[in-house]
Design a protein around this nucleic acid. Structure first.
Lengths: 223, 223
DNA sequence: GTCTATAATCCGATAGAC
DNA sequence: GTCTATCGGATTATAGAC
């Protein structure tokens, strides 16, 4: 009652979380709020505006999960907790995870507003910070934190997306193990030690220039 | 003329590729084909049926890209070529990449048909096969090919998704480098060698049971 | 601020003539 | 197989009274 706008926004999140993007209409929302549809336009410009606020709330919730991970005592534990937090967020709020990563056109947007891009960039920065302090403390190999953060983020995001789309037949408990295992594999490395030693010498051979004779990142692995 | 059904399907792919999922309507498609909307229903049951055929075509195109990678002479090169093929497919046909990985509800499906799941599984199997032969030839560390294939697939998919959504400010040329670099990092491993040695001893400490005292995959990295 | 009423579109899908 | 005509429904958004 005190703030009808917030009440509507809360209902909008609920509606989205249970009905999804397709099921999110101004009429249904009005019904859930307990008013008629035109009343919504006194508080929000249009459907697009409302959906963007929902995305904002999704970021808030993710933020609360990530923030919790910062209470772990060591960089390594904070890193680990961050990975777990991302997992928990996606499993407990799959719709939020989905809308945060939806293509702009699915939201009916011509382009993503800068404020939203900034929030996404903040998530990336969180990963980068975890990586950086792990490098400083010797848990992670020293490297470009920005690049390493992206590698880790992309992996986690990809794995969770595949799972949430039901492409992995594993039940949730098995997926949790799989998720941790996959992280462990990345940290340990997939190549053989000979390959790793070899790789360090021509890591930049992927320029795509014709004169590199098609040599790619894995080539020469078995000299 | 010879096969109107294929002509419609071709136009459907074109329409989707330029208009996206939101812009894909039976009316627009009919206009593009050069007939009226009801005529489409002589060849396809409904919009859902048509969209599924488009997804099928997307899989066909991806398949042609992956197939090309098999012509490389060594397992390591085939692995590398597979990664590049996945990249090229996503960059050259971003809409196909998008629709292949769209959530079922975005396609207006209650559930994904088994035939489509099978095609997705085939992509996964392709990665697994590349991994397996790399393990056999000593380029990749011996491990569960299914798990390692998933790790690699998730990473590639995640990275490409983030890029196609415009979250990485890098231009395409820079992204190509970034993509290869990220693969290289995963193959080499992100952890320090001390961490890697330590990890092998309690890789299974992520069971989530309370008695593991919260020990997670990264803990104990600096003994 | 909220209502009733309605405009203005767009959609998927069908009936029946040809 | 394709057409015209149309049904039946959904949606976003607005106008104007209260």
């Amino acid at each position: 009652m005190t703030d009808q706008r917030e009440h509507i926004l809360g209902c909008a999140c609920d509606l989205y979380l249970e009905a999804g993007l397709e099921g999110f209409s101004m009429r249904k929302l009005a019904q859930q709020v307990g008013v008629t549809a035109p009343a919504l336009y006194r508080h929000f410009e249009n459907r697009e505006d409302l959906l963007l606020q929902v995305v904002g709330e999704a970021h808030n919730v993710l933020g609360s999960y990530l923030y919790r991970a910062l209470s772990a005592p060591t960089p390594g534990q904070r890193f680990s907790a961050a990975g777990e937090a991302y997992l928990e967020f996606a499993l407990e709020h799959p719709r939020y995870f989905q809308i945060m990563h939806a293509f702009a056109e699915h939201l009916g947007l011509s382009e993503v507003p800068a404020e939203l891009e900034e929030r996404t960039a903040a998530v990336k920065r969180f990963w980068d910070d975890r990586v950086r302090e792990c490098m400083d403390s010797g848990v992670l190999r020293r490297d470009d934190p920005d690049r390493v953060g992206l590698t880790l983020w992309a992996h986690a995001y990809g794995l969770l997306s595949l799972y949430l789309r039901g492409l992995l037949d594993a039940p949730e408990s098995a997926f949790r193990v799989l998720y941790s295992d996959s992280f462990a594999r990345i940290l340990r490395g997939l190549g053989t030690s000979e390959y790793g030693a070899e790789l360090d010498h021509h890591l930049l051979s992927h320029s795509g220039e014709p004169d590199s004779s098609g040599i790619s990142v894995l080539e020469g692995g078995t000299p």
